[in-house]
Design a protein around this nucleic acid. Structure first.
Lengths: 293, 293
DNA sequence: ATGTCTTACGGAAGACGTAATAATA
DNA sequence: TATTATTACGTCTTCCGTAAGACAT
């Protein structure tokens, strides 16, 4: 409808009322200004400026057009400028959630570094539970989630913490005295199930459907928060593989931990939706990576 | 800042979420849509859309940009559309003034024709006096003025009425009995002066500074309305050259009219400021020309 | 295998500057 | 005569369609 050059020329010429100065301000040759104005006038079907070699004046139609155009042009410029700032520099507020105490500690360090580095951007911290971390991310309630990998359908940042797996068992459980176990024991003892609001891939990574030998894993009761899972373990309803930090962050007299020799490490990383990427988000992930190393 | 194609593509793609359909709606090839989006994203410094070959989605930054952009783009389109309509088709209200009864009659006929032809446009009629017709036009109080030529610095429409000059004199004046007079008599009898708010050129056209023989014209008192001028004539303070119609429109027992043989005809025409030209104005002048012929 | 976005390439349209011209005071 | 807007002309950018490629379902 209206080319960029056209409104630039019209608005500038309406201010300057002089083709030469208008051209200068727009880094154009005066002839170009003349052509652009004339072409627009032909398209509009009315003169916007009355000009002789000695004077330039707005017509009433031109004046009206300028009056109507100016605020909207400013509005567009603001919108683009705003998008540019959101994309580049950290601004506004960033909502970050974590699942579990270890992630919380990582997050606090990252937030401290970020806060010092980008005072113009507020970080709002939320604690999520095992069952609602990913759903809240997908729902757009939070921008970044620090959680256990793998997570599908999201962008994944660098691993902040990688720890060996321990099996949580009741203190008097047959496995409690062992130096270490293998995942083969999942065929003999029921394993507490993760909430099914978690993606299946994530759950299977922690607790496979079959033991290494091919026997089916025995399914225990389902828990939806970490505390709930530990309580189920303590009450003898199942065992559950956790990251090493749990032994330090959740020391309970009614739960013992035994290394799982053949389980992959538990990796913690920030994840986010590609659609929510922004300058602030990128900067935060960078801070998290720095504090982790 | 933002090219026309860019916002067209961004807004359309945000609606369609499909490059092919977007291209179709904008009469472009899909490749062009892709290039435009990518180029804008590079300039903004952030992704506006997340896309695979199977799906297209707005990022939060893109969504914000679209939300901020849309109303202003509509505003610009409206502004241009409005200017186009003002330039082409008669719209809104047109303020027309006339000086003198003959012009008034012409105007009424023109307004009637115009009103029937362009019902969407209102014509507001004003009566102006000899002294304030042109000033009111210049001040922007009226859009068109039907008055006596010549008028400088304005656009002049076709002559609607051309009539011989008569000299208004008191009935008992030495010239009152003559078959006709020449402008030479202006050297012998004071001539009522037109108001000096009228452009000098206009006044000199009616009453030159010198007689044909080169004698100075005798300056009588100044009148600012036509009725005032006739009253000055009637009271014997001067003579005054008028158009032929005055004998019919202003018949007074105390004023007689004698043809002025060597005076140019009095021409009546619509005049207007070039800065106020519009579709309505052009249409009105056309109607006036038609009713005159 | 199909539908869809992206990249490479080449041609054509149009934007632009220079210089000459016209118009005004 | 000096200043300024406009037109003519040639160049060069960049816009854009075609076709091939990449990718996901």
């Amino acid at each position: 409808m209206l080319e960029r050059t056209e409104w630039e020329v019209v608005l500038t010429l309406a201010e300057e009322l002089h083709f030469g100065r208008t051209a200068e301000r727009l880094h154009l040759a005066p002839s170009q200004v003349s052509r652009v104005v004339k072409s627009l006038e032909r398209r509009v079907g009315a003169a916007l400026f009355v000009r002789s070699s000695r004077s330039v004046a707005l017509t009433s139609i031109g004046a009206r057009l300028v009056r109507d155009l100016a605020p909207h042009v400013r509005g567009i410029e603001d919108a683009v400028r705003n998008a540019m700032e959101s994309g580049r520099s950290p601004r506004g507020t960033l909502r970050v959630a974590f699942v579990g105490a270890a992630a919380g500690q990582q997050l606090l360090k990252a937030a401290a570094l970020f806060g010092g580095r980008h005072p113009g951007c507020e970080v709002r911290i939320h604690e999520a539970q095992v069952h609602d971390g990913v759903p809240r991310l997908l729902a757009g309630e939070v921008d970044v989630l620090i959680t256990v990998l793998p997570v599908r359908g999201v962008r994944v940042g660098p691993v902040l913490l990688s720890e060996p797996q321990l099996l949580a068992v009741p203190p008097r459980h047959p496995l409690a005295g062992r130096r270490s176990v293998t995942r083969e024991v999942y065929g003999d003892h029921p394993v507490v199930r993760l909430p099914d609001t978690m993606p299946e891939e994530s759950r299977l990574h922690r607790v496979p459907a079959e033991t290494p030998a091919g026997r089916p894993v025995r399914r225990g009761p389902q828990g939806s928060t970490f505390a709930e899972i530990l309580t189920l373990v303590a009450s003898g309803q199942g065992v559950f593989p956790v990251g090493e930090h749990a032994a330090r962050f959740y020391p309970r007299p009614d739960v013992s931990y035994v290394p799982v020799a053949d389980a992959p490490p538990v990796d913690w990383a920030p994840v986010w939706l590609e659609t929510n990427e922004s300058g602030a988000l990128r900067a935060f992930v960078e801070c998290a990576a720095e504090t982790a190393s």
